[in-house]
Design a protein around this nucleic acid. Structure first.
Lengths: 335, 335
DNA sequence: TCAGCTATATTTACCGGTCAATACTAATTG
DNA sequence: CAATTAGTATTGACCGGTAAATATAGCTGA
């Protein structure tokens, strides 16, 4: 059984193609009876409008693109889940791209999307970028919403969490639990999110009069192997009594390092990390987390994008939705 | 800056549109000099061919669809990661759909895709289906590859793991560790994967002359809340000394139930589960898993689909790639 | 009876590419 | 010098829809 097109369907009904076309859109000058007849015949013959023809004609694709740094991360897969739900409700399709934190891929993806492939983009940026100006070109034509990891110099709506506050509370929590030498683990210090989170940490130290040692700001990587070396080295030389990780992966890396080095959590070192891992409770010891409302972030980002698509005039380009993360205290920071 | 189309570009170069069009495809009768000039001008004016126009004309989209039951599951997000990598190399885009294990959504998605939206589909099926016949209609026109969760009655290439063997070894492992009352937790008994995995369990019991108690086959759901009730009830009434979960989520549910009921793992009950969780080692206790090569499964499925797209004649519709899962023994099944 | 109106259906010109058929150009050959 | 040919560029039909402009039918009321 091959696909049938609108012309054949029209012919079989002795109607014109545009009458048939109308039957598939909402408000139109079409007789209810005719419409029903058409829809029935369409079902019978298994006709559905060709997406590409409509897209070409209507100059929109009913598709949104989602660009994330990585897929194997609970935060992003949950956010995508949120986006997917909204998109599906709206009858939109979603394209997924993973940059693996590679700036060049990010640029390449965006350039690809930029010709009708998608009607809008929801993106969490790669860590490495320096020149984001390329985004400004598109931004005029192709609605863009940032979530979580953003470029500060690009003016476009964004959905983020109260990173400063939650970093502050997480650090404060470590301090109150008795930590004095708290390491802050970060993957990319230049990224706004790394900076904001670090500031919360710094200010908490200051508030409690804890001297700041810049060696305790530890630059990590995306490589499991390298992080392992970096962390073991850190534990050996710096002897931190607390570790605050700005990324989920680094909390796991810390656990592994401690296991290997026979450092007891929380007795010897307390650990808290940004993480959306739903089973943080099941870890050994259960991990104190700053948990972002990941699905909600996706939902909000999608809603924002659809607002831009449907009522562009109502959207302020500088709009910023800030959602609250929660500090969930568990055993990794117990006294 | 608005988008420029082929006509305008051609005009600016004093060439015809088809000459320009040729410059963007490989082998074509075009003067190298002309081609270079065109490409340079295209770059200058920021021209790229409109995807939808090409798709319409060429009747293909350079897009593949990936349909999975859920996104918030390590196995699927890793598999998608594998698919994404291959697709990107081939210059393809991927559309993601999550069925939430809902058969109706699955059917709706497929029907949507069925008109040029995608050139092929990679799918792990929803658990609930009864009538999959709808797939046969499409299968002729739209290449389809199953992975992991498959419908047995649909003849199309598939990538699966040696579920029977790994179930058998997992069950055997529990038996050797001293378990005699082993519960098998399953979400959908009717799904082939549920059946295959169960058979491994049954045969292991038989081999070791352990009487089979059908109450120990426990039907679970996709709801966290309901599973919690089901499992607590199971522990109270059936007193299993081993639990084998056919799905990652159920292993976590088992942990939660044991925590709540003060049942010690592995002293009181040993637990093993299918899971692609990378940090299974960090759980309390570390979880013995049957780990599927999730990224590899995605890669293989994608390669298979591209083989179908590029050289349909070389593909046997009954092709079945079987990858090995690994039983990784950890503390949840320690003696 | 007929202009005017409403409700519905059709005609036709696109959208932006691709490709088969065709035209052109310059070089080669009888 | 005309005919052939190889190489390259152009014309025009088409992919499958959509929507503005236009046509048609049936009805109303002066």
């Amino acid at each position: 059984m091959r696909n049938i097109n609108i012309k054949e369907l029209a012919k079989s009904l002795n109607l014109s193609t545009s009458t048939v076309s109308r039957a598939f859109r909402e408000s139109s000058d079409i007789n209810k009876e005719t419409k029903d007849k058409i829809l029935a015949a369409a079902k019978e013959l298994n006709y559905q409008p060709n997406h590409y023809a409509s897209n070409l004609r209507e100059q929109r694709s009913k598709t949104i693109a989602v660009i994330v740094p990585e897929l194997g991360n609970n935060f992003f897969s949950q956010a995508i889940h949120g986006i997917e739900r909204i998109a599906r409700d709206k009858g939109y399709h979603i394209l997924i791209y993973s940059t693996d934190d590679d700036y060049d891929k990010e640029v390449a993806f965006i350039r690809h999307l930029h010709h009708g492939r998608a009607d809008g983009i929801i993106m969490s940026v790669s860590g490495e970028a320096n020149d984001h100006n390329y985004l400004n070109e598109f931004n005029q034509r192709l609605p863009l919403v940032f979530f979580d990891r953003v470029y500060e110099d690009i003016i476009t709506p964004r959905v983020i969490t109260n990173d400063y506050d939650s970093s502050f509370s997480a650090s404060q929590h470590l301090i109150k639990q008795g930590c004095r030498r708290i390491a802050y683990l970060v993957v990319n210090k230049n990224l706004s999110i790394g900076k904001t989170r670090m500031q919360g940490y710094l200010d908490a130290l200051e508030k409690y009069n804890i001297p700041f040692d810049d060696q305790l700001i530890v630059d990590c990587t995306n490589s499991y192997r390298k992080n392992s070396v970096i962390l073991k080295n850190m534990f050996a030389t710096l002897k931190p009594d607390g570790v605050f990780t700005s990324v989920e992966r680094l909390a796991f890396a810390t656990y592994y390092a401690c296991y290997d080095l026979n450092i007891a959590i929380p007795a010897d070192v307390k650990v808290v990390g940004f993480s959306s891992l739903q089973i943080a409770t099941l870890l050994n010891p259960s991990l104190t987390t700053v948990t972002q409302p990941s699905t909600k972030i996706g939902v909000e980002a999608a809603l924002l994008l659809f607002k831009m698509l449907e009522n562009p005039e109502t959207v302020n380009k500088s709009e910023k939705i800030v959602l609250d993360s929660k500090l969930i205290k568990r055993n990794s920071t117990a006294k």
